[in-house]
């Protein structure tokens, strides 16, 4: 199939890649661009492991085509730390024990970031609803919610 060239701005850097029109943004980020921090858990929009921010909004990148992201600003987990300093959510996830196997972690942190960017002081219920699309099989979510609430409290 004929490939299409797309320009993407990922974590502030410009990329130009040729992709099949059916290529998902997830596969493009992981395999074409080589940023493997974004994870694939289902490829069906059910687990949230592939969550990235597109223009600041959280998106399941397995449900978005790479060509749909043409010209858009995309943030992946690799783009969260600034000048080598972890984002407060990243810090909090470590400190509160919100990371176990770590497979859900990148997507979880980005969903949390999208929430806090829009609603800096959410209730626990709002946090739980905001991450309800991100499955975590390890933690039971307790420490994840605690970590997010801690950042919200200080933000």
């Amino acid at each position: 199939m004929v490939k299409q060239v797309v320009q993407l701005r990922i974590n502030g850097e410009d990329y130009e890649v040729a992709v099949e029109p059916y290529r998902t943004l997830l596969d493009c980020i992981r395999d074409d661009i080589g940023l493997t921090g974004t994870k694939k858990g289902c490829d069906l929009g059910d687990c949230g492991a592939c969550t990235v921010l597109v223009e600041g909004k959280s998106v399941n990148s397995c449900l978005m085509l790479a060509v749909e992201a043409q010209g858009k600003d995309v943030t992946t987990i690799e783009g969260l730390a600034q000048n080598g300093n972890l984002h407060p959510l990243q810090e909090a996830f470590i400190q509160y024990g919100a990371v176990q196997c770590g497979y859900c972690t990148p997507g979880m942190i980005l969903s949390a970031k999208a929430l806090l960017d829009e609603n800096p002081h959410p209730t626990e219920l709002e946090v739980r609803q905001a991450i309800a699309g991100n499955l975590c099989r390890c933690t039971g979510y307790v420490k994840i919610v605690e970590a997010i609430m801690a950042v919200a409290g200080t933000g």
Partner: peptide, 23 residues
């Protein structure tokens, strides 16, 4: 003591290497 996991930093950065990340 409730020490944070030593693998925490690599996991929150997205740097931990899982099976599908090997190329």
């Amino acid at each position: 003591k409730g020490l944070p996991r030593i693998d925490g930093a690599s996991k929150v950065r997205g740097g931990a290497v899982f099976g599908a990340d090997v190329k």
